[in-house]
Design a protein around this nucleic acid. Structure first.
Lengths: 124, 124
DNA sequence: CCATTGTTTCAATAATTATTGAGATATTGA
DNA sequence: TCAATATCTCAATAATTATTGAAACAATGG
């Protein structure tokens, strides 16, 4: 997903807060299944109101998404949004400078270890 | 450069403000030579005081660096810091999920076009 | 040493963002 | 329909961050 500048600003703002950064990590680990709002809030030790506020913030920023499932609202990482942010940082912000891109390429290569390929369809 | 979480939070916060994001872009384009504080401020249409505030913020976040050169203070992009942030996003925040890493790998590949290799020693 | 230039620092104010607790809404099972 | 559960919304407050203009600091050339 191609990120425009205002959306990128939102995304950076969303990740600049400890509670929200932890929420993203937890949801990334949870994978596409996601987790109920309450469970995320509990995991980061936030009140229901505070959790709701931060989750809404992350959703507005396009980093997570939600769906209702019976009584619960399930949040999950938006991998398109997250990779869009990485792309923005590399391409738009850093003008594709090799100093930035090459270390990123190295990380991408590590991505394809058995541990990752096992659970995700990695086409590396 | 390996980024720790507090430093990453700072960096995200630094990039979540329009003036500062524009400053980073301008300094990335300027390359290692960098630009005087005044020139950066002018380019983003900020008062000297405001420019100084934002440049200091970016420097604290490890995204730019400064050196004095006669009367001027020259700021330049800190490519290690910037790539550290990309790595943090891919590895620490996104747990190296292929959905995030693979698009990044694609961008990294584009990085090595003649336009970039001409000016930078790109070992792709 | 003085005036000039480029930049930072400081304190006051304004603006934005986060936290809190109370109450509203939606869904389900009895 | 009612009570229970899960979550959200709202308004008040607190905390953080940004803007402004004046003054301080550093380096240079005359």
């Amino acid at each position: 997903m191609k990120l425009e500048e205002p959306q990128a600003l939102n995304a950076f703002g969303a990740l600049s807060q400890e509670t929200r950064l932890r929420m993203v990590r937890i949801l990334v680990q949870a994978g596409p299944e996601g987790m109920a709002a309450g469970a995320v809030g509990e995991a980061v030790d936030a009140s229901s109101s505070s959790a709701s506020f931060h989750l809404a913030h992350l959703e507005r920023a396009g980093l997570i998404q939600s769906r209702r499932e019976s009584r619960s609202i399930i949040y999950s990482a938006n991998f398109e949004g997250l990779s869009g942010l990485v792309e923005f940082l590399m391409r738009d912000c850093c003008s594709g400078h090799p100093e930035v891109c090459m270390p990123a390429a190295a990380v991408a290569a590590e991505c394809c270890t058995p541990a990752n390929t096992k659970e995700n369809a990695c086409a590396c």
